[in-house]
Amino acid sequence: MDLSYRMRLLIVLISIGVLAGGGLVVKRLLIPDSFGVYGPYRADAIVEAALVPIRHGTNASCFKCHPYEANIHKNGRHHTISCEFCHGTYADHVKNGKKTGTLPVKKGKEITTLCLRCHNTEIKARKEKVIKTVAMPDHLKDQNVKITHNCNQCHHVHAPLKYIIRAKQITGLMEAGS
C-alpha cells in the first residue's frame, strides 16, 4: 500500500479507538446480569447470601423430638442455654426430617470443664446478677462432698437446681411447691 506516513498514523490512532471501543462493548457483555440493580454490585449475591442453609436450629427444633429433656430444660435455670452449644449443631443431626448423625453427650470431667466455662468465680468479670459462680474446689468442700465429684453428681445439667430443690423439699428445708 502506498499511504503517506501521516495517513498511517491516523489509521493507527483510529485502530486504537476501535480497540478501546470494542473493549468497552465486550466489558458490557461480560458484566453479570444482576450487577447494578441496587448499586455497583451483583444483586443476586444478596439472594445467595439469604439462601445459605442454616446449620443451627433453635432449642424449639430440638424439643420437638426430645420432649423428656425439653420438659426438664425448659423449666430449669438453664433454659436460656442453647442445646446445640453442648451437643453440636442441628445440621449434623437431622436432615430433611431424618436423623443423619448422633450428637455427642458430654461425660465425666468434660462436664465439669463445661460448667466452669461459665460458673468459675476466678474469672472476675461474672456479675452476681448475671450468673451464679462457684470457686473450685472450695464449693465441693463447703458442700461436704468428695473433691473428685463432677458437677452433674449434684446438679442436673439441664436444670441445675432440680435435685437440690427436691432434696431440700424432702429434708424439709423448703416447702413443697415453692
Partner: peptide, 19 residues
C-alpha cells in the same frame, strides 16, 4: 443474614445464655 431472612436470630445471639 441467611438466618435473619428465614426469621431466625443470628447463631451467636441464639446461643448466648445471658442475653
Amino acid at each position: 443474614y441467611h438466618r435473619i431472612r428465614k426469621g431466625l436470630l443470628p447463631a451467636c445471639v441464639q446461643v448466648c445464655p445471658t442475653g
